[in-house]
């Protein structure tokens, strides 16, 4: 069983700041972390491997310092990791990203055939969720998104049983392997890393690939050049006028608010239960 998990280094968007003058992201203002959904993807691979045995490879694309998220993945339980890093990949949108990653997966697959690819549902800096299905299409394997449970992995039949989240409820899907899963957070809880993993992670040197390490690459499909979408403009939405701010002491304001709420009879009424 060979599972590849695609992971991304992201700025912690909870604390990131926007430069109000230039409307651009101040990346220095936020620490870089392993995308939280990807941590669950690695964890799920570890859970599967416990039953099936095999190898977990993590793959990431990013600047050289993104080796940190590969080390973090090793800590969770991955066996090895590859970082794709090259200026040629810079500025990629989801289409160009899935192209570059699929080329790296091609090489990984030649070395050790892949049974399962797992990605997080989306990265918290882009929130698109488009790269996972994109990779699956390029590898011509079924994409299964919004996965909340890997119910069964049947290595003999080469099939998986998956619970996939829907708008109201879920569906049970059987898929041939290899296939690609994108996972929701609720799929598992991140476990505490055992000490040997931490030691291994601290010492681990990720495999680094540049564009020259990939075969049959059409460079026009990489990075900014290979990206059909561009950011036209950034703006803060027009501030609505805003409503009325109540005034007075706290208890006065609370009383005013109660009056307002009670006035909206069509919205909010007091009905007798008797």
């Amino acid at each position: 069983m060979h599972i590849v998990v695609c992971v991304k280094q992201v700025p912690d968007t909870k604390i990131i700041k926007i430069n109000p003058k230039t409307n651009t992201l101040d990346r220095r203002s936020a620490p870089a972390i392993l995308n939280p959904y990807d941590a669950h993807a690695v964890q799920e691979a570890v859970k599967i491997k416990r039953k099936t045995g095999g190898t977990i490879t993590v793959l990431s694309m990013g600047p050289p310092q993104a080796t940190a998220v590969i080390k973090k993945s090793i800590e969770i339980g991955a066996d090895r990791g590859v970082l794709l890093t090259d200026r040629a990949f810079a500025g990629a949108d989801t289409l160009a990203t899935s192209y570059a990653l699929s080329k790296a997966l091609e090489r990984i697959n030649m070395d050790l055939p892949i049974d399962l690819v797992i990605c997080g549902k989306h990265a918290i800096d882009g929130d698109t969720g488009q790269v996972g299905p994109g990779i699956a299409r390029r590898m011509d394997i079924p994409p299964i998104t919004s996965v909340i449970e890997v119910t069964e992995v049947n290595q003999e039949e080469k099939t998986v049983l998956i619970k996939r989240k829907l708008t109201s409820g879920y569906e049970l899907i059987q898929s041939e392997m290899p296939c690609l899963l994108t996972v929701e957070k609720e799929i598992n809880d991140i476990e505490y890393s055992p000490m040997p993993n931490m030691i291994k992670a601290a010492r681990y040197e990720p495999i680094i690939w540049s564009v020259n390490d990939l075969e049959n690459v059409d460079r026009t499909q990489l990075g900014l050049k290979g990206s059909p979408t561009i950011v036209g403009k950034m703006f803060t939405p027009p501030r609505p006028e805003g409503g009325k701010k109540l005034e007075g002491s706290v208890s006065e304001q609370v009383s005013q608010l109660m009056e307002i709420l009670m006035e909206k009879k069509d919205l909010f009424t007091l009905t007798s239960s008797r």
Binding site: T94, D127, G132, P133, G134, A136, P143, T145, S146, S227
Partner: peptide, 23 residues
């Protein structure tokens, strides 16, 4: 931008090699 809508759009965009804006 439902689970199925996002899933479908992402796959279609890849095969048509075109741009897709999410959410």
């Amino acid at each position: 931008a439902t689970p199925n809508g996002k899933d479908l759009a992402s796959a279609v965009a890849t095969d048509l090699s075109t741009g897709l804006t999410a959410d």
